[in-house]
Amino acid sequence: MNDVISTILNHRSIRHFEDKPLTEEQIQTIVTCAQSAATSSFIQAYSIIGVKDKEKKKKLVELTGNQEYVEKNGHFFVFCADLYRHTIIGEKEQKNVNPSIESTEKFMVALIDTSLAAQNAVIASESLGLGICYIGGIRNNLEEVKKLLNIPDRVIPLFGLAVGYPAHITDKKPRLPFEHVYHEDQYEQDMEKYFRQLNEYDQSISKYYESRTNGQRKDRWTEQISNMLLKQNRMYMKEFIQKNKLDLH
């Protein structure tokens, strides 16, 4: 096993960081690695906002659901799906690119491009001995996030990424079984096998939580996820996307 694979397999979310900022060289390395990710048709439909201002970070803590590690980290990145740049390209070249930009396909391309770039940034960060935590709570209050960071239309903040020196290393959380995720030639739909795999995974997750919390928590994965899905959240997203001139047709 080489160092890259070892780094990837050793991933876990870090929520407590040392009070030590990243250097400019580290930030540039992480962003440059993000830019080296694959991009559909070379469209490069994303932007990354680094947040250093202390007051803005404090406000982001509030907007993301009071997650203090949004403020207390080595550096905070906001990854954005960005089709504003391509609107400007159309104006520069005097071509009407808006119908394409407003399509569901190009919106999906922007989401995928951003996610690929972010994961490259994560692997780069972890290879430098840093820890990371994705912050989906950025999407709790997108209008306020856009105002705070002066983000134009056709740019959607998708998630934050807290990066820093780990103050505490957590246990690695077990993932779904390989056989449950990987299918060959067709999607496996044997329900007996499907439920057996889920039941086995439930047991491993329950043991993980029990060990991590000294018996205070024993919930199963399917229990946890079904309860999460019962709660409808961020249901304003379609309206927000359309308001930001990504009409999705």
Rank of each mutant, 00 (worst) to 15 (best):
M1Q: 09
V4C: 06
I5H: 07
S6T: 15
R15C: 06
H16I: 07
F17V: 00
D19F: 03
T23K: 03
T23L: 00
E25K: 12
T29K: 11
S36F: 07
S36W: 08
A38M: 04
S41I: 05
A45Q: 02
Y46D: 02
Y46T: 01
Y46S: 02
I48Q: 01
I49A: 01
I49T: 08
D53V: 01
E55I: 00
K57W: 10
K59L: 01
E62G: 02
Y69V: 01
E71R: 04
G74I: 02
F76G: 02
F79D: 03
Y84F: 15
H86A: 06
T87P: 00
K95N: 04
N98C: 03
E102Q: 15
S103C: 07
A117C: 02
I123Y: 10
G129Q: 03
N140P: 04
L142S: 09
E143I: 12
K146V: 11
K147S: 10
L149A: 09
I151M: 06
F159H: 04
V163S: 09
I169Y: 15
T170R: 08
P177G: 07
E179I: 11
Y182A: 14
H183Q: 07
H183G: 11
Q186K: 15
Y187R: 11
E188S: 10
M191P: 07
Y194I: 06
R196A: 15
Y201M: 05
R212A: 08
Q216A: 13
L229K: 12
L229V: 12
M237R: 04
F240S: 07
Q242D: 09
L246C: 03
